[in-house]
Design a protein around this nucleic acid. Structure first.
Lengths: 214, 214
DNA sequence: GGAAGTAAATTCACTATGCAGTATACTTTG
DNA sequence: CAAAGTATACTGCATAGTGAATTTACTTCC
């Protein structure tokens, strides 16, 4: 067998991920990927059935890497929940500050395919986000948070929101705001044990239907 | 002059928005838009210079509508900040529950064009989000919040995060989590006037660089 | 009132290009 | 040699954008 197939596949996956992450799915052609991987298109189709298949495999590979990275981050973290969350958002700030940053690969690709619920890439992305959220919850649990799932989800919301808004505005200040909000939420979860949470709220007169339909 | 041009333009804009919102930018063809508007493609090019131009105009039009909708929502709101924010997230929950919902048109389109900072659509979307954030801050200010810009930004982060995650997961539960978090943040901003906010935090040993690079 | 003029609005038919995917032949290595 | 891997050259289709004719409704002048 000439030129180990594994190497070729890895090379293709990496080149494809770089392009997909920067330019999304449909705006990247198989020819471009082939060129970036220094191969011909035909070789791509030898290793992957189709463009959609390639995307799915790319996301799978990135899922592994990201999960590993998060685990190694989590393993280093032993302090308070507040310290953990601060470290997370510091990482986020560093990450989004990269010069040609163009959003989370997963989020970006899934949003592009938002109207194709059956697409394999979506399934993988869903699993990915779910698993990361669970890992964060575990980490928070180890730091003594009681309602760890709740907090993890809230933190995750802030992080995704920051990514999205930084992308829209180009204003990196959102990561600072997210960190500040996250700090508040963590404190609330540590200081207030588990009560005064689901109090009945009074309701304003019925609001217009489309206020947020932006 | 045959068939008032204004009407035709409106019709095109509406058809284009419906398609763009559902399927994104690149996966919608001018032919499809023309068909949806019951016109020929050539007519589209009579009214709009290019596909990119059309997109920009579509977003401009939606900007007007969304802003108006938010204002009419804001004008009805007179209660406490907490009530306002709750109403907002209730709206969000209703909105994302629409059967064929596929994300905020703005967010979705801007993310698709994330690597094209010069695109006119991006400029418009940026202005849009900024203006809505400012309107929310005003509303919160009127409800007695002191650091209204801070809170508005935090709320906005939660809302964008929810949209993004609901899109990825298909799990509408995120809007409930966002509302819960928002409630916490509002309370923090009302109960704690404006202190104990920027305390020095202790730092964990340096975290790995790529933990969040998903 | 109506014919003729006119410019806006719209259509049909077309070009050119880009792209996913393929048929087939060649090359490398065990 | 044989099988895994790679390259050249191609098909067919979708799509952004265009050239030129044609229709439409409003104005002007008799």
């Amino acid at each position: 067998m000439p030129r180990s197939a594994d190497l070729t596949r890895k090379c293709i996956l990496e080149a494809a991920y770089r392009l997909f992450r920067r330019q999304g799915y449909s705006r990247v052609s198989m020819d471009e990927i082939a060129a970036a991987a220094r191969l011909t298109k035909r070789t791509l189709y030898y290793h992957f059935r189709s463009k959609d298949d390639l995307l799915a495999r790319v996301l799978e590979a990135q899922h592994e890497l990201a999960l590993q990275a998060f685990q190694s981050f989590a393993d280093q973290m032993t302090g308070s929940a507040e310290a953990i969350v601060e470290a997370m958002f510091r990482e986020l700030a560093v990450w989004v500050d990269k010069p040609r940053w163009a959003g989370s690969g997963f989020t970006r690709l899934v949003i592009e395919l938002a109207d194709l619920p059956g697409h394999p890439a979506r399934t993988i992305a869903r699993r990915h986000k779910a698993q990361l959220e669970r890992s964060l919850a575990d980490l928070l649990g180890r730091a003594g948070i009681e309602r760890k799932e709740e907090l993890a989800r809230e933190i995750w919301l802030l992080s995704e929101g920051a990514i999205s808004l930084i992308l829209v505005h180009g204003d990196r200040g959102y990561s600072a705001a997210a960190m500040r909000a996250a700090r508040t939420l963590v404190r609330h979860h540590t200081e207030v044990p588990a009560s005064t949470r689901t109090k009945r709220r009074y309701v304003q007169r019925r609001p217009s239907r489309t206020a947020l339909a932006s």
